[in-house]
Amino acid sequence: MSISAPRYAAGPSARTGPASRILAIASREFFRRARAATLLSVALTFFVVVTSVVVTVIFASFLRAPTAGDFESVYESPVWPFLMLIVAASAGAGSLAEDVGDRSISLYLSRPIRLVDYVSAKTIACGSWLVIATVGPGLTAVAVTGALGYASASVLLAALLGFVATGFVAAIFFTGLALALSSLTNRALYSGVAIFGVILVLYIGGSVVAGITGNIYVPYANPIENIRSVAHGAFGVSGGTATDPASSALTLVGSGVVLWVFALWRMRRVEVVSE
């Protein structure tokens, strides 16, 4: 082993601001999640959404001029929410848990980084993956149908707005959920399983309880029903949902934010300097 003084090639250099430090954490987190599971689930989402939307629109065009509602069809089956669960689990379950698990979080928080900066950086990374998965395929489907000339410009624009609105609402909810569950444990596996567990319990439980009691507020507890309702509202499809689209959107965004704040609060338990 040799020992020599470090060379200070650049001399003392100017320091970057908080934004670029947050970006450094966010980009590392983003690329760390670009693993097979994430990439495959996102690719699968693109494939499923684009093919189902394009096929539905083409079939519709045989009967009549396609409407924005034809683009919404993808939200009617549970396949799409299921794909979002895989993306959320793969891209978000480990984001806080793994840093707590290997304790690298104590290094971040000993740096010129506040806890809220750190959690925000993780949110950006996880949220980016979810936005790619929620909004990306819809936009691609709009572009493909537009290019094939099956829908008018105004319908395409309406569908585009529908995909963006639904996608962002869903992404906010799933990001908040993934981070909150990730903050509860130090194993990505546990929080990943928990994401599935929570949604399935709410989905099945919500449907069953709503069916038995007939209470009109119970369906708001079912995120998948809420997303479907938001999609209906965003694509201008009336009726067919148990909840009011605006209220559902508020529920999803609100619970996403609450879950995010919960994650932030949970991370306060981390002791940077331990005994």
């Binding site: 020992i3 060379r7 200070y8 090639a9 250099s13 970057t16 601001g17 430090r21 740096r111």
Partner: peptide, 21 residues
């Protein structure tokens, strides 16, 4: 290094230096 506020290129070159150290 980047998290501590070094610009990316500086962080990389410093990382090489300190790992050698």
């Amino acid at each position: 290094g980047r998290v501590s506020g070094l610009p990316k290129e500086v962080a990389i070159s410093r990382a090489h230096d300190v790992l050698e150290f």
